[in-house]
């Protein structure tokens, strides 16, 4: 039984060298936090709390990861999520009748979510069109749309918060099924779907090809432009799902909500083994990285550490990860050369 497990781990480890350190890091972080907080970290209440906080961050990180695999980036995820949330909130508040029956309620909520998805798709199409067809570098496109989308949201709301969603809608962020919060289930399903798309579907393979060598990919008959267009639409839809969750969890929408999460998503992608130069990235790595980061933040908050210390620690962790990657890469290189030399001698 145990030997079987070790063998399995060995084989997983060999196949996933780029993220193999993460389970250990996760374990160490959890252990340190448990000890440092005198056990408060592992109490049921805090675990629930951790579970409640992860989905929005995880969904946004996935939205950041998809373009990163194609050697792009999407800086507009937060502002497009906010625009989506504001439009959904206006719809919910505008059409929700007093004392509506169960059927109407469900139809309206599904309608609001559908509207949100349409908005996200439109926002994603603009990004995807500019990156794929006009060939504007992704950093610049999404920098521009980040400013533009936030501006539009600001103009719609005139700076005010739209709050007090219908009770039924809030269930998405607060109710549980089988002990798991609904929005956690949403995240797990989305992560699973993304993992399947990434690692089992032709589109996923194209995504990685585009990320590692767009020219070669184009010559091998893949429509690179279409792949890129799809990429940014998917990214935007993921941000839209995050908006659905955030609207339910925070019961409000505004132009600048969640702006501090943008950096965390980049950090999570990096930590989770996504290569910002494109071509690499695993959903499992991202999920583990997210849990690690969330545990560190939460633990530091439990300890009453100032948030600026958290900011600095994240920065240090990022440098640490880069350094680790570099030395690991060098180790592989050395091994490869040794093997080559050994073969030559034979």
């Amino acid at each position: 039984m145990f030997a079987e497990f070790v063998k399995r781990y060995q084989s997983w480890h060999d196949r996933n060298q780029d993220i193999a350190a993460l389970p250990w890091l996760l374990f160490v972080v959890l252990a340190i936090m448990t000890v440092a907080t005198g056990g408060r970290f592992l109490r049921a209440h805090n675990i629930t709390n951790l579970l409640a906080q992860m989905p929005e961050l995880g969904l946004l990180s996935l939205a950041m990861m998809v373009p990163m695999v194609t050697a792009g980036i999407n800086l507009s995820i937060i502002s497009s999520a906010n625009l989506t949330a504001v439009i959904m909130a206006l719809f919910l508040k505008g059409v929700f009748p007093q004392g509506a029956g169960g059927g109407t309620t469900i139809i309206i909520i599904v309608g609001a979510i559908a509207l949100g998805m349409i908005v996200s798709i439109v926002l994603g199409l603009l990004n995807g069109f500019l990156v794929g067809y006009v060939e504007v570098p992704a950093v610049l496109t999404t920098l521009g749309t980040m400013i533009l989308y936030e501006g539009i949201t600001l103009a719609i709301t005139r700076g005010f918060v739209i709050s007090s969603m219908p009770e039924a809608y809030l269930l998405i962020g607060n109710a549980r099924i089988l002990g798991l919060p609904i929005h956690m289930i949403i995240f797990l399903v989305v992560a699973l779907v993304m993992a399947i798309i990434f690692h089992r579907r032709p589109y996923g393979r194209h995504l990685f090809f585009v990320g590692s060598n767009p020219t070669a990919t184009a010559y091998s008959g893949v429509n690179v432009r279409r792949v890129l267009l799809k990429t940014y639409v998917i990214s935007s839809v993921l941000a839209g799902i995050a908006a659905v969750v955030m609207l339910a969890r925070f019961n409000s929408a505004n132009a600048r909500q969640g702006s501090s999460l943008l950096l965390s998503t980049v950090l999570i992608c990096m930590l989770g083994g996504t290569d910002p130069f494109g071509g690499f990235g695993k959903v499992l790595g991202l999920v583990m990285a997210m849990v690690i980061l969330q545990a560190v933040t939460n633990g530091l908050n439990l300890l009453g550490v100032r948030s600026f210390a958290t900011v600095a620690i994240w920065g240090a962790m990022l440098v640490g990860v880069i350094a680790y990657r570099y030395y690991q890469h060098q180790k592989w290189e050395r091994k490869r050369k040794q093997l080559q030399r050994a073969r030559m001698q034979q």
Partner: peptide, 19 residues
């Protein structure tokens, strides 16, 4: 570090866990 309501919500959740 900034007036982001979402960030504050997460901090309040953590503060509650501190009991």
């Amino acid at each position: 570090p900034d007036t982001d309501p979402a960030a504050q919500a997460r901090i309040l959740e953590d503060a509650i866990s501190q009991e």
